[in-house]
Amino acid sequence: MNGATVFVVDDDRAVRDSLTLLLEQEDIVVEVFAGAESFLAACRPTSKSCAIVDLRMPGMSGMQLQAELSKRGILLPLIFLTGHGDIPTSVRAIKAGAVDFLTKPIMGSELLTSVKAALRESERMSMQAEASQTATASIASLTEREREVMALAVEGLPNKEIARHLGISHRTVEIHKARIMHKTGADTLLDLARIADAGGLRP
């Protein structure tokens, strides 16, 4: 798992240390934190990272950390560790987007499976974020009229309809469309629809 980083947030030194050894054996870079506060202060999620968080810690709890990350718009898959299987809490955590909820003592294989799933989720999220960023940028490079044409085109309207809708000539629509395809780098109408979706273009 090259290039993967796992953040371990637990107030118990032995838990941090043992998890580090286990994860490093899988060629994962491990960064440890003794509390949620120090983690938040230093946290820099990469495109392939996740955090293993103890649910109960002095100061900020695991659930509070989850809420804080979401508030700050930080996309980071979380795996919670807990001393006792508290079902309502785990349900709340999962609903709030936690990847997994493991009860101590944890099994190494189980933890590694969760970590792998979390890292995949991390990659998916960062790719999605990247695609959305590119799409937003290319939509931003269009003129107002071009955006109008694009919105109607991805809805599946033929050129004639678009022309009638916007009160311009059929020929002008064709020119706009060619420019749109060029600027967004889309090859097909399907590509264009995907970009519109990722970039949040609304008709």
Partner: peptide, 13 residues
């Protein structure tokens, strides 16, 4: 539970 968790992970590592 706390020490057991660490023992388990240390040993598995």
């Amino acid at each position: 539970n706390q020490p057991l968790a660490s023992i388990s992970v240390y040993s598995e590592a």
